[in-house]
Design a protein around this nucleic acid. Structure first.
Length: 373
DNA sequence: TAACAGTCAATATC
DNA sequence: GATATTGACTGTTA
C-alpha cells in the first residue's frame, strides 16, 4: 500500500509530536528511555530499543494472540467487549507516561498557544539524559503542568507533520513513566458481548509474509513473577541498563488490518514490555458512596497512548468507519462508544477551535487536517 | 442508526 | 478555589 507511506510517516512524526521528548522515529532502531517504576522501585528507567517499522501480521493473527487463551494459558481470558485482549496476561504496557502531554497536546488545546514547539526542547538525546528522576514513574503519571506549554494545536500538528519535522524532545524534566496496558483502560467498563475478532480483511487485500507476532510481541505478565512462557522484560528493573527489543508497535499493526478504503495509519505507539499499570487515572470509586447516590460517575481519562493514537488516527481520518472504530476500540482497549465519542468530540472541537480562531481574526490558515464535514 | 449540538460533570491546571 | 479541559450523556435530526 504505497500510498499509505507518506501518511504513515506523517503519523509517526505526528504521534510523536504529542510528546516531543518521546519522539521516536521508528524508522530506525534506537533507544529511548523507558521508565517504568513499579511501586516501591523508585525512579528508574530503561532504554528500550525500538524496532523499525515493519509489517505486522493480520489482525486475525493479532487477535488470536489476544483472544486465544491457549496462546497464553495464564492469561485471564477476558470476554469484555472491546477490551484489548490479553489485558491480564499478554497485555502491552506503554513505555512512558504522557499524561501531562496528553493534556498539553490536546487536540482542543489552546489554539493560539502554539509556543515554538521546539524552543525549549532538547534533542532526543536529551531524552536519554538524566533519568527522570522524578518520582513520578511510580504511578505512571508524569508531573502535571509543564507540558502544557508544549501544547501545539491541532493545526500546528498538521503543519509540522506536513513539514516532516520531528518534534524535538524536551529535556527530561518531565519523567517519562511507563504507561499502563492499553487494554486496561477501563476500570469499570461493563462487560459486553464477545468482541468481534476485528474487521474482516477485505478480499483481495494481500498481506506480506509476516513473522508470527507472538514471536515478537512478548506477552506481559501482570504478575511480578510473570507467567511461564512469558519472557517479560522488566522495564524498570533489570532492563535498566539493558536494551529491550520492542515489540512491534500498534502502529505497525494498523496498516495491515486497517479496513480497506480507510486512510492508512501508522502511529507512534511505543509499546514496551513493561509492568502493566493502572490504565488511567480513573479515580478509585468509593463503593459506599458510589452505590448510594446515583453513582458519581468517574470520567475516563485516556492514557496518553490512547490519546495519541486517537489523535493520530483522527488526523488521518476524521470519520473512521464503524469497522475502524471497532478495531481501534479493540486495539486501544476502549469501548466503541468511547472511540465514537472521541471522534465526535474531536470533530466538533477541532472545528470549534478553527472557527474560534477565524472569528478572532486568527492569522493561521484553515487547518488542512480539519475539514469541515 | 449515526451524526450532531448542547450540555453536564469529572478531572486537570493554575 | 476558579477556570479550563474533556469524556460522556441526552435529545434532535436526517
Amino acid at each position: 500500500r504505497p500510498a499509505m507511506v507518506p501518511s504513515m510517516a506523517s503519523l509517526l512524526d505526528g504521534a510523536a509530536e504529542y510528546r516531543p521528548e518521546l519522539s521516536i522515529p521508528l524508522h530506525h532502531a534506537m533507544s529511548v528511555p523507558c521508565e517504568a517504576s513499579p511501586p516501591g522501585m523508585g525512579m528508574s528507567g530503561t532504554y528500550t530499543t525500538l524496532t523499525p517499522l515493519q509489517p505486522l501480521p493480520p489482525i486475525s493473527a493479532v487477535s488470536d494472540k489476544f483472544h486465544h487463551p491457549h496462546a497464553h494459558p495464564h492469561a485471564h481470558h477476558h470476554h469484555h467487549h472491546q477490551r484489548l485482549p490479553g489485558s491480564a496476561g499478554g497485555g502491552f504496557a506503554l513505555m512512558r507516561d504522557e499524561r501531562g502531554l496528553a493534556a498539553a497536546n490536546s487536540l482542543y488545546g489552546p489554539y493560539k498557544e502554539v509556543p515554538a514547539v521546539g524552543q525549549s526542547l532538547s534533542p532526543l538525546g536529551n531524552g536519554l539524559g538524566p533519568l527522570p528522576g522524578a518520582q513520578q514513574g511510580l504511578h505512571g503519571y508524569g508531573p502535571p503542568g509543564h507540558d502544557k506549554m508544549l501544547s501545539p494545536n491541532f493545526e500546528a500538528h498538521a503543519a509540522m507533520l506536513a513539514r516532516g519535522e520531528q518534534p524535538l524532545p524536551r529535556g527530561l524534566g518531565t519523567p517519562p513513566a511507563m504507561l499502563p496496558p492499553l487494554n486496561g483502560a477501563h476500570h469499570s467498563a461493563p462487560p459486553g458481548p464477545p468482541p468481534p475478532h476485528g474487521p474482516a480483511l477485505p478480499a483481495g487485500r494481500e498481506r506480506p509474509q509476516l513473522p508470527d507476532p507472538r514471536s515478537v510481541l512478548r506477552p506481559v505478565s501482570t504478575t511480578e513473577s510473570g507467567g511461564e512462557g512469558s519472557p517479560r522484560v522488566p522495564c524498570a528493573r533489570a532492563a535498566l541498563a539493558q536494551p529491550v527489543t520492542l515489540a512491534p508497535t500498534v502502529c505497525q499493526c494498523l496498516p495491515l488490518w486497517w479496513p480497506a478504503g480507510s486512510v492508512g495509519t501508522t502511529l507512534t505507539l511505543s509499546l514496551c514490555l513493561c509492568h502493566p499499570l493502572p490504565a488511567c487515572k480513573r479515580k478509585e470509586q468509593e463503593p459506599s458512596k458510589e452505590r448510594n447516590n446515583s453513582q458519581k460517575k468517574s470520567r475516563l481519562v485516556f492514557t496518553d497512548l490512547q490519546r495519541r493514537t486517537l489523535f493520530a488516527i483522527f488526523k488521518e481520518n476524521k470519520r473512521p468507519s464503524k469497522e475502524m472504530q471497532i478495531t481501534i476500540s479493540q486495539q486501544l482497549g476502549l469501548e466503541l462508544n468511547t472511540v465514537s465519542n472521541f471522534f465526535m468530540n474531536a470533530r466538533r472541537r477541532s472545528l470549534e477551535k478553527w472557527q474560534d480562531d477565524l472569528s478572532s481574526g486568527g492569522s493561521s490558515s484553515a487547518p488542512s487536517t480539519c475539514t469541515k464535514a
